[in-house]
Nucleic acid binder design. Structure first.
Lengths: 139, 139
DNA sequence: AATTTGTTTATAGTAACTATAAATTCAAAA
DNA sequence: TTTTGAATTTATAGTTACTATAAACAAATT
């Protein structure tokens, strides 16, 4: 997604554009699709944005999330942020820790749930196991 | 599930049977199927088990999990424990906070993921939205 | 350029665990 | 049934991941 998609989404939700927000946007864009913790982003951008604090990174991620350009999920004791806002599974490798996006058919799941009378705002499928690479690396 | 299912599962995994463990087992059994945090269980049983600490409750839940009688998932900043070990979705109501089990077809999802070469150990589908009851309560 | 309101920063605080080590207890074997 | 050794519990301290607060600052509308 191009930079203006993030900027315009923030503006549409009445958020202001700040240099700190642009730095975070540039970070997630250049690592997209990916999975980030607030701390990871903070550590990566603090050389470029030396006065930024972790609290600001959390605030920015909340703004991006509420403007619809990033999604979150919780696993392994942390909140993870990602730019892939399409429905998909997140596979966490118990061996190497990497997180992979896995395409999943949304229809089958949601029709089931909404058919039972629930109104779904958000869905997260979190999978744990051993990833392809780690399976191959085994003796 | 009857008490012996939990006890035998612990024994099979080489865990010892302690009064504290039996108290937690009785708690989750009498609230099953349900969704609990360690703190909730701790608060509910401390009158019955006055010397127990929160650390012990965490330890017991870890033992139950590793012996296969409880599952966990993370959402809303906490780890939740549940006795429903069959594959299902957990629907969290953004309005009332209640968590509901939702039947989901496991096959469709897992065939997809394992077909891509991943070995799945655990799967959690977490849904957020407004539950039936809260939708009806709206003006 | 002035004003308003949102944002950032620094800092302190909290919630949800996790680690550690001594005391205790389970349960297998003598 | 006592002994023994390992697991468990307990008390306590520590850590990690966030959240709250208030003052300083900056964006963007007029």
């Amino acid at each position: 997604m191009d930079r203006n998609y993030y900027i315009d989404s923030l503006k549409k939700s009445n958020f202001k554009i700040t240099p700190q927000r642009l730095t975070v946007i540039d970070y997630v864009r250049s690592h997209s699709p990916g999975h980030f913790t607030a701390e990871e982003i903070f550590n990566s951008i603090k050389s470029e944005e030396p006065t930024i604090t972790l609290a600001t990174v959390y605030n920015i991620l909340k703004a991006l999330q509420s403007s619809g350009t990033v999604k979150t999920f919780e696993t392994s004791g942390s909140t993870w942020f990602e730019t892939n806002t399409d429905f998909h599974g997140n596979f966490v490798c118990s061996n190497c820790g990497k997180i992979y996006d896995i395409g999943i058919d949304e229809e089958g799941i949601l029709s089931n749930v909404e058919g039972s009378g629930y109104s779904v705002q958000e869905a997260n499928l979190i999978l744990k196991g051993i990833c392809k690479e780690c399976l191959l690396d085994r003796d």
